[in-house]
Design a protein around this nucleic acid. Structure first.
Lengths: 231, 231
DNA sequence: AAGTGGTCTAGACCACATG
DNA sequence: ATGTGGTCTAGACCACTTT
């Protein structure tokens, strides 16, 4: 565990425990370096980390201040912390609709950057947020990277399995957001009439060495999902 | 201009000029430090900058590689570069619908963190992307921070004016995404039938010292807008 | 003028990937 | 084993804000 992550957790915990409100001033950089017995540069890296997580903001010449997310019940679009944290925090559960192995269509092959002769896992699921339908998801996993998957795993958090059991490191992702009208399976599994609004998020996940391993199309139920983004 | 920003621009330009493709390996950290005559730490900061912009990705023990945004015509949800760049790049223009000064409603007062006695500018606009209706936007600016605004300015880029003329530094923002059905003014100005899908993005912008100065509700035309997010 | 965050350096050592 | 990115330090100096 790097020091700067460790110190970040400690400061985060302190903010939480002491219930510091938005705008509360924290100790200065040099003071923090003393408190946690690390160099100034390490504290700076810690602060950058906390800043991108939206926990603090820094004002040159003035100080470091606490920042808070205002509204509750929104899904964060950037995995600031672990995605699992979010899952348990918001109470998200999955129901498996179908699971199979297949040859990729052209659309899938393009987005996974593979040949039509490679094999992919296809997983269809409905996700629930606090017992309400949140989303209908169609995911494709490249079989030569995600070497094994089965129905039982697909019912839980696939990403958790990929990280822990397969020890695959997830590097980065591209997400495309498109607003559409529902139809067919999408209407059916979201339990909405045809032509209801929906947010389609197409996600492509890459390993740390830059290879696509997951292409997903997630249709969100417009009444049961709201999103949040800090920058 | 800090060195690390300067070097970032140079590397960015190099990638663009030489049309380096996704996955192309760049020189190592130490080589880059030599090439641009800066210390290793400065290059690391440069690389972090380029990484968050989605231009490169780093793989420990292996190297630094070029990353590219795949699809065209998507609006980036994070202002990686200047927002203006995006405006001109995508060809976005505004039409002013109304402009006035008013006392904030409770909703506005909460989101701008001000009293109901303060005054705010209210600006309603329709934005066009390549001559198609992109969005209908209702914005509120706190008058004690955005000290002056008029119709003529509101027709152009207000943020550009705020930055250059008012020399106000924009610090960070919160964005909330909600999918809705259109009605009333929203349908009217987006030129869509009632109950059409729309993406509502509520945005709150803060100055560098953490004070809210802008609260905006932007309704996007679902057929003429798609969004993009890298992480 | 004093305090605070931001940039930069040179160098040491660690962790991971590849051949 | 070698190369490469990742972490960390101590210290210098700069830019901005506050008093």
């Amino acid at each position: 565990m790097p020091k700067y992550i460790d110190v970040a957790s400690k400061i985060e915990k302190k903010i939480k425990d002491e219930k510091l409100s938005q705008g509360t001033k924290l100790p200065s950089v040099t003071e923090l370096a003393d408190i946690y017995s690390v160099s100034k540069n390490t504290i700076l890296k810690t602060l950058t980390t906390l800043e991108t997580r939206g926990e603090i903001y820094q004002v040159q010449g003035s100080g470091i201040f606490v920042r808070h997310k205002k509204r509750k019940g929104y899904i964060t679009l950037l995995e600031n912390k672990g995605f699992l944290h979010e899952l348990t925090y918001l109470g998200i559960k999955s129901k498996l609709i179908s699971f199979k192995t297949k040859k990729p269509s052209e659309e899938i092959a393009i987005n996974l950057n593979c040949s039509s002769e490679d094999e992919v896992y296809e997983v269809k699921r409905v996700q629930y947020i606090q017992d309400q339908i949140m989303s209908y998801e169609i995911s494709y996993y490249k079989k030569n990277i995600v070497t094994y998957l089965n129905k039982s795993i697909a019912q839980d958090s696939i990403f958790n399995y990929i990280k822990t059991a397969l020890k695959l490191n997830i590097g980065f992702s591209d997400k495309y957001l498109i607003v559409e009208k529902t139809k067919g399976d999408v209407s059916k599994f979201l339990d909405l009439p045809d032509n209801s609004p929906t947010l389609l998020i197409e996600e492509i996940y890459y390993t740390t060495n830059g290879e696509q391993f997951d292409y997903s199309k997630v249709y969100y139920h417009y009444e049961h999902s709201q999103f949040f983004l800090q920058s």
